[in-house]
């Protein structure tokens, strides 16, 4: 990173760039959530199942995010691990209306937490209990107990209920993630 970049960042003109990984089971709404953060004119109207991954950029109040929107389909989930090493934060999207597959999501989460690239790092994990508008959806509290989130002790985590179609709850979660990542970077500098 050049001198001017550092200067611009210090002055607050240019935002610091961070990478986040967006994972979760297929049809949980990852691409839709990312789509919500995009500027209005480049929004995509028909969301199709992702094959592989997509790179998207969006900004929050203090950071420029580069989101790796991974495919959630079963056969591509083993490809997530290629992107663990460089990420500063993880967004895990849960379909809160799909109680049946909640255990599968839990399995994937456990695998993620146990992975050697993430295990010993204190990276923040943001959970979205998505599709809260649906009638059969469960509350975020219920969701966290189903996913066994209280077992996570070495990483900061946060869960919030969201509706990716309307954008409800999304900014709340991203604000939390921004604070966490900022703290993390500050503490590393010290």
């Amino acid at each position: 990173m050049g001198f001017f970049d550092t200067l611009a960042q210090w002055l607050g003109v240019k935002k610091r760039e961070v990478n986040v990984l967006v994972v979760g089971l297929d049809n949980s709404g990852k691409t839709t959530i990312i789509n919500h953060f995009k500027p209005h004119d480049s929004k995509n109207h028909d969301i199709v199942p992702t094959v592989g991954f997509n790179v998207e950029r969006f900004t929050s109040k203090a950071l420029a995010f580069t989101a790796f929107d991974m495919s959630g389909q079963g056969r591509y989930r083993n490809l997530w691990e290629h992107y663990y090493r460089e990420c500063h934060g993880v967004i895990f999207v849960i379909d809160s209306s799909d109680k049946l597959r909640m255990v599968v999501a839990k399995d994937e989460l456990d695998l993620l937490l146990q992975h050697s690239d993430l295990k010993n790092r204190r990276i923040p994990i943001l959970f979205f209990a998505n599709k809260m508008d649906l009638r059969e959806s469960v509350s975020s509290v219920k969701c966290s107990s189903l996913m066994g989130l209280d077992q996570i002790r070495d990483k900061p985590w946060h869960i919030c209920a969201s509706n990716a179609v309307t954008g409800e709850g999304l900014s709340e979660g991203v604000d939390w993630l921004t604070d966490q990542i900022k703290d993390l970077i500050e503490s590393k500098k010290k």
Binding site: T50, G52, Y76, L79
Partner: peptide, 12 residues
């Protein structure tokens, strides 16, 4: 292996 990973990105 797994070159299929870039499909969506390329489609975009």
């Amino acid at each position: 292996n797994d070159v299929i990973i870039v499909t969506s990105s390329l489609m975009k």
